[in-house]
Design a protein around this nucleic acid. Structure first.
Lengths: 342, 342
DNA sequence: CTGTTAGCGCATTCAT
DNA sequence: ATGAATGCGCTAACAG
């Protein structure tokens, strides 16, 4: 007891139970056939010795890990947390374990993690890629993405390589939100973005097209970039937006991390929501519910579920990889009270 | 390429490089001594074959995993997320990997996960236990907690077994918050709790003692229990509290998951913060900052760091386990604008 | 500095 | 239904 490496192996169990290693293995691993009598003896020995099967030896031999990995930018993003919990649930139902990895928005870290996951021989990887301006890093390490283990992307559609991706209809969401604001009479609409994610580019693109199709000329000062991890940054950014454009009556926030800071910034600027400024932000959260903020809502639970489904499909049948799957899930405008008709 | 199990082993690499398996192993695993010439040949072979070392085989042989696990109730709790990120950071610095496990507040799940982690031979486990009214389940599975692998508890001090624990001074925090409210003139102070965690009991206990020491008689209707995962539940709970006690002027919320619902409930009841009701909640968050709510702030980064430090200490020196470590980290009253003097 | 050999703990033939 | 023997991919111990 209390040895560093639990020295008790299946051989010890077998000896104690008075059977062969193979037989002990059968009852412990629950395969093959064994008599009740033997089963009992072995189970007793397991209990008495407090035996714990060595998962490494097991999967080294069986060549199965029954594990899928989910790697995300940040588990502090509540959207991803919901995706992860959905993945865990779905994976559990299909008796897969899941490994959660956090890249902290660092591509090098992402690559390291991917390599480690490959070494650990996970069966599949669900990946929400970290952002990088320097796409070359990815290309240089493309083997991290193009190994023999299937990758399902979420929140990102890769150009570099052929791969599956599950995304929300970000373009459509941006378009829908903007059109809604225009319908309420707004014409000068600002946008806040971290400019750090593939998804945000799509959202902004929808916003731009909605403006264009409604004959509103986009002003470059309407789009402000801010960092998502400090309130100061994002509140400062909105204030800048309002300062630069005193005719702005609505703001669209395309990254959930900017939400709180934006609200604070608008307040600090002396404006009220929705009286002075109408606001739509991406993703539902405690805050949007609490503050009654209209949102563009994605369905993280569904994304997680679909991703796992596809991942397992690929695990079970390699040939399925031929038909590349790109799913673009629908998105919903959830109207609350942060937008005013003018 | 693109085979299910990458068939390329160290032997293939060795063959291709024209060296022995052992030598190939040395340069790949970066141990022992090798000449530059050989090093280069091997690395080339690795690249050409897109070789990925088998982590299972490796740690089966070396008997090291260099992995520590953190298991929490829910990664949707932002407090734990901060703890986890601190753990990852600290572990990374000491070149440990970390495995994140999510028990979904289910003890059976927790036990399953612990067994799995033992099988995977992680070096140490940091555990924020799931709550259970039925302590017997734990006792019945005590071997999950008393294996040969060291466990450091966070947010919990185990009775059942001898083990290390890192907690915040929850009792002190409850006391401090209550005393602060009393100092502002409040005498009728309600408490909201999920009644699901060890920590909350401590916090409430501090609250009760502060009342007693200030000659305020606790009324049983002041304490209301609510579920943390639905706004409806917690907002309903506050409303009940206010309904039952129309003389209440302050509310202490001892679980961060109740925060948003509480605010909504108070609003829906037609009361204003802080004019009618003073509010203190546990843990800082985006919401408390946004709404300017006074909090009892823990230091999750510190908790994570200390936990990893202790875990690694135990890994390196089993004898350290003799002196049981119980750390009770200080806690801070962070005054904002949700409490009024009366 | 490099090669040979053995064996980590287990699942899987193939016998019986 | 059970046992004996083999080898998964790798690192460690020992030679040379």
């Amino acid at each position: 007891m209390n040895q560093k490496e639990s020295p008790v192996t299946i051989e010890d169990v077998a000896k104690r139970a008075g059977v062969s290693r193979a037989t002990a293995g059968r009852v412990i691993g629950n395969y093959g056939k064994t008599s009740m009598a033997v089963k009992e003896k072995v189970m007793n020995a397991v209990k008495e010795l407090n035996y714990s099967p060595n998962a490494m030896a097991r999967s080294l031999r069986s060549k199965k890990t029954n594990t899928i990995a989910i790697v995300v930018d940040r588990i502090s993003n509540h959207f991803f947390v919901k995706v992860i919990e959905a993945i865990e649930k779905e994976a559990f139902d299909k008796s897969y374990s899941v490994i959660i990895c956090n890249t902290h928005e660092d591509v090098r870290n992402e690559i390291t993690q991917l390599k480690s996951l490959r070494s650990r021989r996970v069966d599949a990887i669900i990946l929400a890629p970290a952002y990088t301006k320097d796409q070359k890093i990815r290309e240089k390490n493309i083997d991290a993405y193009e190994s023999d283990i299937p990758i399902v992307f979420i929140d990102y559609e890769p150009d570099e390589i052929k791969a599956d991706s599950i995304t929300s209809d970000n373009y459509g969401g941006g378009y829908k939100a903007t059109e809604y604001l225009i319908g309420l009479g707004h014409r000068n609409i600002g946008v806040l973005t971290t400019d750090k994610f593939f998804t945000e580019k799509e959202r902004v693109s929808g916003y731009l097209d909605a403006l264009k199709n409604n004959n509103i000329e986009f002003q470059s000062t309407w789009l402000i970039q801010a960092d998502a991890h400090e309130f100061g940054q994002s509140s400062h950014a909105v204030k800048e937006l309002l300062m630069l454009n005193n005719d702005i009556t609505a703001v669209l926030v395309v990254n959930n991390g900017l939400c709180a800071g934006t609200i604070i910034g608008i307040q600090e600027f002396g404006k009220k929501i929705p009286e002075d400024i109408s606001l739509i932000v991406w993703d539902d959260s405690e805050i949007t519910e609490l503050m009654n903020i209209t949102t563009i809502a994605q369905f993280p639970e569904f994304i997680g579920k679909v991703a796992v489904h596809r991942a397992i499909e690929l695990v079970n049948d390699k040939s399925k990889a031929e038909e590349e799957v790109k799913k673009n899930l629908s998105i919903e405008l959830r109207v609350r009270k942060s937008c005013k008709k003018i």
